[in-house]
Write a protein that binds this DNA or RNA. Structure first.
Lengths: 246, 246
DNA sequence: GCTTGACCCTGCCGTGACGTCTACGTCTGT
DNA sequence: ACAGACGTAGACGTCACGGCAGGGTCAAGC
């Protein structure tokens, strides 16, 4: 039997057979004078065994181990392990599909990219048309949410949830956006800065600042400031000072 | 913000950030005099977007397309496609887990490697201790089963099922094994060959031969014959002749 | 005898999303 | 001055093959 016939009989490609030879999974058969491999039924049987194992999802190195253990000694063990692995994969896929469906069912996909569905709901409550500041805030919240650990995320989200249940809080937040937008091109010693900082401090729920990675890195904070106008940056600085006092 | 800070803020490694630069997914930022990259908040926002997309399971080239389309134009399309893909993967995993559980629940795993569960059941009926011929037959059936298309497999299995429901048939098969075993070292013109061929022909259910890949390849048949003793091979040859006449 | 086409051979590059390592320069604190 | 933590660029490894290059071999038909 030549390689093509062997491959056809077991339902693989010749490339696969040679690959198994290369890995030492399938012993090299005799060669004819012209160099062609000539296989026996034994080879076909082994190849079929390998196939059955790989089709169950075993990796080739695991197949090698199973074949090496002459009595299929710990095959049960390997298969059990594999089943657990597959269970994990299945769960992961299901979770991703859930998130996907949540996004698709929501209908509208924001240009900032798909948020986590929970955050998306919360941000929808906050949305303000034509406010650069509101847009930036959403970006930053999405950013912190993306980089947070599950624990941190939960703290962040619950803090936001709590705050947004209060209509006054939502109103104050919109006011803060408006005040900050007005300061886009102002100088840092603009008289409106003080009031803006007070208003802003009143909309930041406790737990948001300690929840994200914001305070951890000097560089991140500097980049954050650099992204605002000078007066806006000054507002943020003062807001942080106010919040630290509490 | 330097690369380590950016990476920490979004929750990836610096290697990942550089990888995205390499692929053009994330624009290269300015460099300091020493060559260090200095990132702005914009970069962090884009990086977080990329992360959210990859965490949904998008490949980086798909992420590239989504980011390129300035309005996230066909993001919905990509996500729908992805969902279908994930659905397929999920189904595949479930099927494999089913087969795995069937094997594990069966308790005993044959050294010949795990058969498809249906075939395993059928072969258990046929099992004979200490008969090399029976063992060989099981190997060959497993082999044909492994290499068969789903249509062929169904035909093979149903033919076997039908045959094994008849206790007479099972008895005849065992007799055929015994006759063949007795001929292991005999010569092709042994007088017992004729009777063995008649007995064997009566146990091969119609549909088995046309179902597998056996008749397709010269080489496979030659290898098959080569695996038997001369008298045994002669029995097979005669059996095939008898079956052809029917 | 020559070509055509179907096989076979070896060996190397590509896949995806990075991890890991080499080999080096740079900044910071003591 | 030196250690240790950062940064730079680039190459190789992962997994199970697919695909291709650049050949050789064999049967059949002209």
């Amino acid at each position: 039997m030549r390689i093509g016939e062997l491959a056809a009989a077991v339902g693989v490609t010749t490339r696969t057979v040679r690959h198994y030879h290369h890995l030492g999974l399938l012993p090299e058969p005799e060669r004819l004078a012209n160099g062609y491999r000539t296989y026996t039924l034994r080879h076909a049987v082994v190849l079929a065994r390998i196939r059955r194992l790989t089709e169950l999802g075993l990796g080739l190195t695991e197949v090698r181990d199973v074949l090496a253990d002459d009595a299929g000694k710990d095959l049960t063990e390997v298969l059990t392990e594999l089943d657990e692995d597959l269970a994990r994969q299945e769960a992961a896929i299901r979770e991703r599909r859930q998130r996907l469906r949540a996004l698709l069912d929501a209908g509208e996909l924001p240009a900032e990219g798909p948020f986590s569905p929970e955050l998306a709901g919360l941000l929808a409550t906050l949305s303000v048309e034509d406010s650069p500041m509101a847009a930036k805030d959403r970006e930053i919240l999405a950013l912190v949410d993306t980089g947070a650990s599950p624990r941190e995320r939960e703290r962040l989200l619950s803090a936001l949830r709590g705050a947004l249940e209060d209509p006054d809080m939502v109103a104050r937040t919109r006011e803060a956006y408006a005040l900050l937008d007005a300061l886009a091109d102002a100088s840092p010693d603009d008289p409106r800065v003080k009031q803006a900082a007070r208003t802003l401090a009143d909309c930041v729920p406790a737990g948001v600042l300690t929840g994200g990675r914001l305070p951890d890195h000097d560089g991140f904070l500097r980049a954050l400031y650099a992204d605002f106008g000078p007066a806006q940056a000054e507002v943020i600085r003062r807001t942080l000072l106010i919040l630290e006092e509490r």
